[in-house]
Design a protein around this nucleic acid. Structure first.
Lengths: 243, 243
DNA sequence: TCAGGCAGCTTGGCCAGTCAAGCTGGCTGA
DNA sequence: TCAGCCAGCTTGACTGGCCAAGCTGCCTGA
């Protein structure tokens, strides 16, 4: 009995063509061998070759023009999920004692914005968990987690110990659904009095204020993550295709 | 002779299944009819059915589990490109005389950041085109376009007339390449003296400062778009899948 | 009783071939 | 000469069939 794993033929062809494009053997703009040439070279049937080329096209490696051929675009500059988005990163982040200080964890009245994101009435009770993250000696970020109180009860989210795992996992197991997507809201503002103290910034400082609402596949919001970043210490980066 | 267009069979099947999911006929979590049932109902061969279902899976409508079946996830909450990203929107935006005022258009020494994004030496000459966008009576946004001088020469970008079309199109035809993706850099800061005047904000105001670098498929940067937004008048929104 | 195996379902992968649509370059006939 | 046609290439769409892998429930034999 053997447990070796051989990837499907079409996947092998994908890998080989990607390698040739990266190595410069198939330079950008040049035509790929035709389907029949690839069939002959790799000993595959046409649908197999076509499937591989279809994946390469969907992933941006090549373009195809009916009647002309397929042409190399180059290595896709955007490998999806290359540098993770901020909200996504917050969802997975673990609280590391040496850099994270818990400020509060417990029930509060939901601010209007949070209630709106979570689909609650204004002033409903929610659980707020707030930490300050340090970089070196300086405080560099205030991270807040907001969620419906019934979701946090009895979980590590409402306790004052460091979170053993990312918020995303905790919420998924507490809510019994998978988180599907994130909606981010971003703005710039001056600090509140509390934030001046926590971050050690001037009243006139410019802060990035980012809310990340994590929803399940049906669009229902389960948790809101907020991070407040001094603009002079942080720059957010993001990349996406144009079409 | 007829010029009617009939979409491919697999596309018709995709549309029909999407319709049934949206209508509630196939509720989230329920199993889809098996491949053989769909073959019988729609009179298609198996690969045709499989292709349609593969597209639906790639687009997030359904998931498939080998040995069990395919299951409805629901309408994907994120129709890609649903609300266009800021940098992308800047690339397409036209200058409307009633809301846009041209501040400057011509050669300047490239600031360090711009030179770095465009891959130029520090202090190289670049073309800067800067406009103030009004919303109602108030100035609400400063938009700047930076690009290599040889690209802008002889085009509408270096002229003081309103742009007849989006910056993206102009750059693509001037550079002779298609723009492929955008890299965004975002931070918060206080206004410069010039920006205080143009936007009519206090020295302590918090501004969103967004740079969008538009690159071709090989990763070469062709144009940098910058927008400066008072934080109290703007909120950026974005959504993306978690996995 | 109940563990194990097997039949029958599902999806995944692959093949050989057909027809249609679109492009290109060479040939042909005016 | 040169406009127009057409052969021969390309990719796109589709068919009918095969075998493998994985899951589930029934059924059989210890």
């Amino acid at each position: 009995m053997s447990f070796e794993y051989t990837p499907p033929k079409y996947a092998q062809l994908i890998a080989e063509i990607e390698r040739r494009i990266e190595s410069g053997e198939y330079p950008p703009g040049s035509p790929l061998p035709s389907e029949h040439q690839l069939m002959a070279e790799f000993g595959m049937a046409r649908p197999t070759v076509v499937k591989a080329l279809g994946v390469l096209r969907d992933n941006g490696w090549i373009i195809s023009e009916q009647g002309k051929g397929r042409f190399v675009r180059g290595r896709p500059a955007l490998a999806a999920g290359q540098h993770p988005r901020t909200g996504r990163e917050l969802l997975d982040r673990k609280e590391i004692p040496s850099t994270t200080r818990l400020v509060s964890a417990g029930l509060v009245k939901a601010p209007r914005r949070i209630a709106s994101y979570l689909g609650l009435d204004d002033g409903a009770s929610v659980v707020l968990r707030r930490t300050v993250v340090h970089q070196g000696d300086e405080p560099s970020e205030i991270v807040s987690v907001w969620l419906r109180s019934e979701l946090a009860e009895g979980t590590a989210l409402a306790a004052s110990a460091e979170l053993p795992q990312g918020v995303g996992r905790l919420v998924e197991s507490a809510a019994g659904v998978g988180l599907d997507h994130i909606v981010e809201h971003l703005t710039a503002r001056n600090p509140t009095k509390e934030e001046r103290g926590l971050l050690g910034v001037a009243a006139s400082a410019a802060l990035l204020d980012l809310y990340a609402v994590a929803c399940d596949a049906t669009g229902k919001a389960h948790v809101v993550l907020q991070t407040v970043l001094p603009g002079d210490r942080h720059e957010l980066e993001d990349a996406y295709p144009i079409r």
